[in-house]
Design a protein around this nucleic acid. Structure first.
Length: 407
RNA sequence: GCGUAGGUGGUAGAGUGGUCAAUUACAACAGACUGUAAAUCUGUCGCCCAUUGGGCUACACAGGUUCGAAUCCUGUCCUACGCA
């Protein structure tokens, strides 16, 4: 059978898991490590495909759940799939909807982050946190069972049951080059007993996703990645990597929640076990310090909403750390966001102008900040790739983080 | 000049005897954001201390009534509209 994707490793990091390589997809190559820009509803928020491309992005990731709910599978089909919808000629990814099992389910209405800054004490044994009985609890929009997850449509309240097979079927219709198996992203606050249960479910779903995928011709043109889970538990993470690694996936996603402080450890556990020759995507991770850890520990691609969301909200990355363009101090600052940055925003606009646009709620302000952020993060990962190839990764990491995290 | 309505915190605009340092919105100031419920959300927003809390000065200005006034009365100044 024809393979939809191939991966070659061109350089490895001495004594560690990091590597540089190339993912060949039907719509072009991805030089890895690479940052994949998120365009949930087949659009990178605030940016045209040309802007995304100019910012250096090689690929875009959209979301199955969102496109299924709106505009719906049939319209996506009529529009000619994601390639035509997005007017994006390059490689594309789709997430399976597995993250929405978490964000619209256990995480719904709560301030639970995907990455925990200060690790709270989590009981290793105990009942699953369930506050659905509490009066102030918001009704979840997802109910999980053995077979899949029932999503309540925010548009008309109708119930949509997504099984692993349905997720893959929808992803086939959307037509991205790389798809993810339907998984359950668990809440960081869930106890081990629940992580165990959810992991078994994710594994069953992974096999069903793969079986269904292999039964279709799409398997020749679209790649499927299995998603490793296991929360913050070493044995579960390794078990997950081992179980999924043995299956005939084209690559792997690493999902779920992490501790900010030991994200690198968790990623290493997994990547030590996964087959070396297949690409690994670290789902939803994108802060500079996390990207360094991900690359160093063997992840090839990343995606994250941070560059565009932060940009829309007025926060921009600089080599000296993040700054908020809405702060009073930038009101009459006539320098660019970064004076040595060659992104569209920095070439043309001063902080003062962008601050004015942001303050006056002009869309252009959010766009310029997003352009800069995408350029910054995509460029940073590209620099990591270059450094990895010429043997200066450690130097880059040290110098970048020293400056970025100073203060 | 007469009549009418009104003058409240940066702005608009609630309140019309005690629960008012004063609803709300905007502005301002700061914070958050990691497979996008997110062009969103949170906090602060008279002054001075303080941990709950306390003190001071405030609703045009000056007096007054009252245990108590942004709220009632008198006068002054100002604004808008109408009539001369």
């Amino acid at each position: 059978m024809k393979k939809p994707l191939s991966f070659e490793i061109t350089k490895k990091l001495d004594g560690r898991l990091g590597r540089a390589g190339i993912i060949h997809t039907p719509h072009g190559d991805i030089q890895t490590p690479a940052f994949i820009v998120v365009g949930t509803k087949a659009a990178v928020r605030g940016l045209t495909p040309e802007m995304v491309k100019e910012a250096g992005a090689q690929a875009v990731l959209a979301n199955t759940y969102h496109l299924y709910m709106q505009p719906g599978e049939e319209l996506v089909r009529k529009m000619g799939g994601i390639q035509n919808m997005m007017c994006w000629g390059g490689p594309t990814f789709t997430d399976s909807g597995g993250f929405q099992v978490f964000s619209l389910g256990a995480g719904y209405g709560k301030n639970i982050s995907k990455v925990l800054k200060d690790a709270p004490v989590v009981p290793l044994i105990g009942p699953r946190e369930d506050d659905t009985e509490r009066e102030d609890a918001q009704p979840r929009l997802v109910e999980i069972d053995h077979d899949g997850a029932a999503f309540k449509s925010p548009f008309d309240g109708s119930i949509h049951f997504i099984t692993p097979e349905r997720s893959i079927e929808i992803q086939h219709t959307i037509g991205a080059d790389i798809m993810f198996a339907f998984d359950e992203c668990t809440s960081p606050s869930e106890p081990r007993t629940y992580q165990r249960e959810a992991l078994d479910r994710t594994h069953r779903w992974a096999k069903r996703s793969l079986d269904f995928h292999k039964s279709r011709l799409n398997a020749e043109t679209q790649a499927l990645f299995g998603v490793v889970q296991g929360g913050r538990h070493e044995d579960l993470r390794k078990e997950s990597a081992s179980v999924l690694g043995a299956l005939d996936f084209d690559g792997f996603g690493i999902g779920g929640s992490f501790d900010k402080n030991d994200l690198h450890t968790a990623v290493r556990w997994v990547n030590e076990v996964l087959p070396e020759g297949k690409p690994r995507h670290l789902l939803g991770i994108g802060e500079p310090e996390d990207l360094f850890e991900g690359v160093e520990n063997g992840c090839d691609t990343f995606d994250c909403v941070a560059p565009t969301r932060l940009g829309r909200h007025g926060t921009v990355y600089t080599k000296d750390g993040k700054i908020h363009i809405g702060n009073e101090r930038y009101k009459s600052d006539l320098t660019p966001i970064e004076d040595d940055c060659d992104c569209y925003a920095c070439r043309q606009y001063s902080r003062a102008v962008i601050a004015h646009l942001y303050r006056s709620r002009e869309m252009l302000g959010a766009m310029l900040c997003s352009i800069h952020n995408v350029h910054f993060i995509v460029g940073l990962v590209a620099q990591m790739r270059a450094a990895l190839i010429d043997g200066t990764f450690d130097k880059l990491k040290k110098e970048f983080l020293n400056r970025y995290k100073r203060d």
